[in-house]
Structures are given as structure tokens and as C-alpha cells.
């Protein structure tokens, strides 16, 4: 039986990260994009915890703690933003939010 090493977890983390980034780049629904960002954060958390276990250092878990907290705050604000935009533009298609066009 091959042992589960840290490499496995790194690989998994990378795959999840890539999927998340593809979501950010390819989807047009603002909320889906946001969720993809959450997944990217999550993959990073996974990597942290894996390394905490691998190196025997609790600091990884402490950092995950913080990341989760910050992610929560960020989600709150971001969703409030989307709701506010929806009120004016009546759409959450991100391609329609192009007022910063130069």
C-alpha cells in the first residue's frame, strides 16, 4: 500500500485551486465567481493543514483559523456589494459591469 505523503495533499490542493481559478475566469455569474474564490481559499487551507501535520507545527492550523475568519468577513461584504449592484443594474452578469471601461 503506497503511503499517503504530503505530495498527495499538495497535488489535491493544486487541482482544487486550478478548478477554482478556472471558475473565476470562465463563469459570468458574479455569485459563481465568488464561490470559486472561496474554493481557492479552501484549497490553500487544505495545504496549510497538511503541512501543519507534516511538519508537526501548529502554526499552520492557526493560520487556517485566520483565513477562515477573513474569508467570512470578505464573503459578507462581497455579497452585500453584489446585492447593491443588483439593485441598480438588475443583473449579476459580470460582463455587464463594465463602467470602468477606459
Amino acid at each position: 500500500m503506497p503511503e499517503v505523503t504530503i505530495d498527495w495533499y499538495i497535488a489535491l490542493s493544486v487541482i482544487l485551486f486550478t478548478i477554482g481559478s478556472l471558475g473565476v475566469l470562465l463563469r459570468r455569474n458574479a455569485i459563481i465567481i465568488f464561490m470559486s474564490v472561496e474554493m481557492m481559499l479552501n484549497s490553500a487551507n487544505l495545504a496549510f493543514v497538511a503541512f501543519a501535520r507534516h511538519l508537526g507545527d501548529l502554526d499552520g492550523q492557526v493560520l487556517v483559523f485566520f483565513v477562515i475568519t477573513v474569508a467570512a468577513a470578505e464573503v459578507a461584504v462581497g455579497l452585500a456589494l453584489i446585492v447593491a449592484i443588483f439593485r441598480t443594474k438588475k443583473t449579476i452578469n459580470i460582463d455587464d459591469m463594465n463602467l470602468l471601461k477606459g
Binding site: I31, N42, I68, L79, V83
Partner: peptide, 19 residues
């Protein structure tokens, strides 16, 4: 937090916007 609060929040907003 993640699955219980954040995703619930997401679902709330999706429902709210009729997405």
C-alpha cells in the same frame, strides 16, 4: 463557518436575487 454560515449566506443571496 464555511459550510454552515458562508454557504447559507450564499444561498440566501441567490434566493434573494432570484438567481
Amino acid at each position: 463557518v464555511y459550510a454552515g454560515a458562508i454557504m447559507v449566506l450564499f444561498l440566501f443571496v441567490i434566493m434573494l436575487l432570484g438567481a
